[in-house]
Design a binder for these strands. Sequence first.
DNA 1: CGCCTCACATTGGTCAAACCTCTGTCGCGC
DNA 2: GCGCGACAGAGGTTTGACCAATGTGAGGCG
Lengths: 264, 264
Amino acid sequence: MTDLSSEMFKVVAPERRGTTSEEVVIQLREMIHRGELRPGDRLPPERDLAKLLGVSRPTLRAGIRSLAAVGVLQSRQGAGTFVVQSDGPPTLDSSPLRLMASLHGFTSNEMFEARRALEMAVAGLAAERATGEQMATMAEEIAGMYASLDNPEQYLVHDMRFHQTVAAASGNRILTALMNMVAKVLFDARIKTVKRAQDLKQSAEMHRVIYRAIREHNPEAARIAMRDHLVGAQQAWELEDDGADPLLAATNSGNNGGGARPTL
Amino acid sequence: MTDLSSEMFKVVAPERRGTTSEEVVIQLREMIHRGELRPGDRLPPERDLAKLLGVSRPTLRAGIRSLAAVGVLQSRQGAGTFVVQSDGPPTLDSSPLRLMASLHGFTSNEMFEARRALEMAVAGLAAERATGEQMATMAEEIAGMYASLDNPEQYLVHDMRFHQTVAAASGNRILTALMNMVAKVLFDARIKTVKRAQDLKQSAEMHRVIYRAIREHNPEAARIAMRDHLVGAQQAWELEDDGADPLLAATNSGNNGGGARPTL
DNA sequence: CGCCTCACATTGGTCAAACCTCTGTCGCGC
DNA sequence: GCGCGACAGAGGTTTGACCAATGTGAGGCG
């Protein structure tokens, strides 16, 4: 029934002739692939670019918006449209993952398992490649954890930064981006329950174990330590949580007119 | 700066929370998170929905387009706008990854390493959880590989499907989606050079090793076998390639004006 | 009676023109 | 020299209209 070709090419691929705005997206993508647009660059004004590409401004805007939605472009009213310039490592937007989680009913266990796989991989690589400076940063974040054992929210910040440092030390920006993508979903869910967190001291200890394994350039030990840490983190999170699955109740803003808070 | 009077008068008016179209995106996301929109559902007509949300149609379209860009919605002219209904496992669009690769100059080695990490993880999980049916599918794909040793392009299809089956057998849809995301970038790059492929027989043998490890429920052996296979695949790919980095020259035109085989 | 075909209503896609708000800069005045 | 305000330029939004693809149902033909 499923013949060979249908499965593979069934990407988001348009039909014989994509829409005009799809064409715009392709044009802009090509410009990026060809290197004509580099991070930080500013695109021509919409009115000019529309004329340049031979489309109307709304159509061009539709294309720009598509690329902005995936985090490649960023428009600032009154300033212009820019190719995203990330100071740190490149990032992938986590909202698609969050939406997929809602649409297909991902469990938090599934999400944790994915994170575990990614973090174990980066931990192993980090043990092989971490520079002295990166290890110093890890140590500082661990110190920050110990210093904020009585402040769960601040602890969580150090926690997250430690993991990001480990990821950076892996030297693989793709794995780093994927890990951050998954971790951010869990982070956003946990920041609401972390006030009830217990055993932060134990968590900090486990980070030290990870750190030591990386410092000793022992990939396998780093993987094991990271696994144990994340298993513990998942258990802690499940204790904090009251049963409802926060993955399904991400960012809630009051419906129209309400005074919603952008961030906590 | 903090002018209180304006604070009082902002009712439903656009707040500093972002642009109006972003508000639309948030509203639609909320509807998905709350479960009001399920995969396959059809959204109300744009004109109605625009009135419902209290925005103009172009603004609504901008929001819809943002969600369509991340693969959550899909619009079909004359039919309507639908929440994406994926038959198989959920998928994440790989174009953001491709764009990131171009923007930040990802090397193919980095991409292969990421794939290796993901595939090793899913192979290990698959060895623990694969069902009989899934293992049967794997065996069939391997048979397909042997049957197409003289047809590199067809071989590649079986190759990819084997890996997808392994991913499905891992039981983790998030890891599966991430793996496909990375694999697709490499796949699109390789399909151009695969005509020169050598040692397909050896590649098929390595797939059999992976299969046997999974069949014997030996996670560690599956991980090792997958690693060896992908290391070999990377070496083969580097031999096929003439030096230029195809990651930077990814094309997305599905048309087969050149030498692409529609039936493949 | 059943199937096929064509026309029409519905829906998304595109375009045009206009106005608003925000940003950055340049020049005037102190 | 410094600061503030006016101005031009940028993206954001709206209205209104028309085009193109789709889906469906009514009518005719076999």
